[in-house]
Design a protein around this nucleic acid. Sequence first.
DNA 1: GTGGTTCAATGGTCCAACCAATTTCTGCAC
DNA 2: GTGCAGAAATTGGTTGGACCATTGAACCAC
Lengths: 243, 243
Amino acid sequence: MTDFLPPIQTTARDDAVLKALAGFVRQEALGPGEKLPTERILAERLKVSRNTVREALTRWEGLGLVERRQGSGTYLKAAVSPDMLHMPLTLAGGNDFAGLMSTLEIRRALEAEAAALCAIRAGKVELAEIERKLDLMEEAFQTRAGMSSDEDWEFHQAIFRASGNPLFEQIIAAMYEMFHRFWEHPLGVRDFGHASFPYHRTIFNCIAARDPDGARREALKLIATVEDDLKRGAANLKLSDRR
Amino acid sequence: MTDFLPPIQTTARDDAVLKALAGFVRQEALGPGEKLPTERILAERLKVSRNTVREALTRWEGLGLVERRQGSGTYLKAAVSPDMLHMPLTLAGGNDFAGLMSTLEIRRALEAEAAALCAIRAGKVELAEIERKLDLMEEAFQTRAGMSSDEDWEFHQAIFRASGNPLFEQIIAAMYEMFHRFWEHPLGVRDFGHASFPYHRTIFNCIAARDPDGARREALKLIATVEDDLKRGAANLKLSDRR
DNA sequence: GTGGTTCAATGGTCCAACCAATTTCTGCAC
DNA sequence: GTGCAGAAATTGGTTGGACCATTGAACCAC
């Protein structure tokens, strides 16, 4: 029935280039930040035109695997291995309050699951890293008397990384990006995110205590506070000028 | 403190090309399957080299937005609008089993949430549509004596659409795609997904009864059966030949 | 040391040509 | 007119070579 016949590949120069390059990276054990060979050298070694090399590198650049700096060189931005699977995720959403709430609904689902998984899987080093980020965030909260989105985000990222599933971090990063794209104006809410502060510590406590259900519950509470803030902001907007 | 100085953008030809092209697509109201202008024409109109046009199109091709067919032309593969967010997902290394489990963990979180939201928000027409898909799936199950992934997927999609949040469908579609790309071999499990069958009906019943918690619970059960199938398959693999 | 200057290396862009796959047109046989 | 094989035009893929813009290191004057 499912006689799936993949179309034969008659030409795939740039794919071949990428395969060769991935093999090279592994053989040389290159890590993030390290420099790749010059485009001209690659072209010469692989016996292809420099244009073809460039198209291949453009692909990798689009995937965020590589960064090109004019006048300097091409540098690895992430770990790269020959057996990687890429899946482009394109998100389209309304640029309005509904769009913000949509990203939060995704976050609610994923943050809860990630926190629970983290409570199960996090090792000692991951746990220490999460606590470090938590301390940094709480310190920033004290000194600046308010939530700091950078430190806050890094705390959550540490949890996603410790969940043992890289997709959590990547997908929620997309949500975060969308959220901040819509987030042009503070919606008139002062101390946005203030209410979420205590739950960071409670989430961590549950994770450290290996309590998945507790971690999930506290993560849900945290997102709930953000949703409340957002609704307050939307109410404010309806009362004042509407663009 | 936060003296953030973003690096100034000195050149961005291909980005400019893509912006112009996105505008063109919107103006002409081009949809998936329709043909874009020739590379040569684009180069001439935009006053850039064909090389630059090609690099830009290579980007879009990498994002799955466009398909290039030699001798024929370049065709839109997905809806494209100027304000879309692209985030390539990368699943590195790991064997097939780990990748499959990663996508299932995301599905577990999102399907449960989507089912719950659906139970709250679905209108009459959405409910009828879900039930129609459910009937189709059950019919296919009877006639073919086994799960049919197409009808199964359409049922789930109907739920996501009725959740009122377009992100659910977009993200889980990516997970689904990834899952099937890992799915090279049936892992030696006969009647894969068979155990998940009854839960489709129970999920629908909970949604129709406006029972969010029940819908979430049944959705979790469904994913659990798939995870079990997968683990059985992985155990089989370990016993037999390992490539 | 500090601050310019020079210069080679490197990615970014351009051009013109040709290759390979596809589509369209043409003309012949029927 | 119809059908079909072959020619011709179209279109993406590749090549080679050239030049521009940026970077970074070496060098120099102060």
